[in-house]
Amino acid sequence: MGAMIGLSAITERYRRSEQSLLNRLEISDRTLRWLFMLPSIVVLAFISIVPLVRAVWMSLHDWNLTSGKGAFVGFGNYETLLFGNPEFFRFEFDPSQPFEFVLSGSVVHQAVYTGLSVSIEVVLGIALAMYLFSLSERWQPIVRTIFVLPMLVTPIATALMWRLMIDGSIGVINYMLQFVGISPPAWTSSPVMAMLTVVIVDVWQWTPLVILIVFAGLLSIPESRYEAARVDGAPRWAIFRHVTLPGIKYMIAIALVFRLMRSFREFPLIEIVTSHGPGTATQIMNIQLYRTVFVGTGDAGLGAALGIVLIVVTVGICMSIVRRVGMMQ
């Protein structure tokens, strides 16, 4: 109520002011909404649609960067990519030997990499955000500052830093592991470990983003809801399940969408740490795209097709999350 009165006083002052230019501008809401929307729409369309249309156009042509533009091939590049490209997807299964199958390709690596890193980040992020929330006022600001730091490091630096730390000959992590009697793993030279390594680096860099977003969500849950639950004598897990979780649902969804968007186009964290190896064990779709276009003769048509597939997958998954939690309303 007090705020309302204060507010009227302010507006009153402005209303009387002859200086106010805004006061003399009579713009209808119909016009205003487009005045507000158009600059952003125009700018984003300018930067994103023009190259995107061009990329679609490229994907429909047999276009090699070294030997030049070729013929229109329709969906030929997509066909090659989806059905004839073992680097993209490979599944070999012999029913007589059900335990010896081959499942690989950048789609599979992408699923493992994104699935693993994003779920660890979300779980760890929620846990650490709740931990942060539970701290006293003395510690909270300090720990909060620390918890945000990894997010501030430019990803290419993160990748190089980790490369230094896990280096086989001068790496500090190997030294510490040996110090406590653990023999260091083959960080980047066994297919499984290499994938875990890039996941670890990704988790280090991006868990803070999840913490920051979820922490904001925790702050926004009214204390009264907790009190009500406590009065009812609800056990802790029930409070988490029925009060906390619903309260941070939107925030988790946002964190998830941001992380997924980023994870689908991750580049330096992987290419610098493992150079997509061993073999192609850590080659995700974006890196296959990079290698298709930039390494070798440069099949821009196939690369563009891969880019479009990647966009469709990202948009599809993110849209389903956004729709599900009703972020759009």
Binding site: D167, G168, S169, I170, P184, A186, W187, T188, S189, S190, A194, T274, S275, G277, P278
Partner: peptide
């Protein structure tokens, strides 16, 4: 053990 990740730098280092 990590020879699989040896590039020029790692090898000579």
């Amino acid at each position: 053990p990590d020879v699989g990740s040896f590039d020029w730098t790692r090898n000579i280092q």
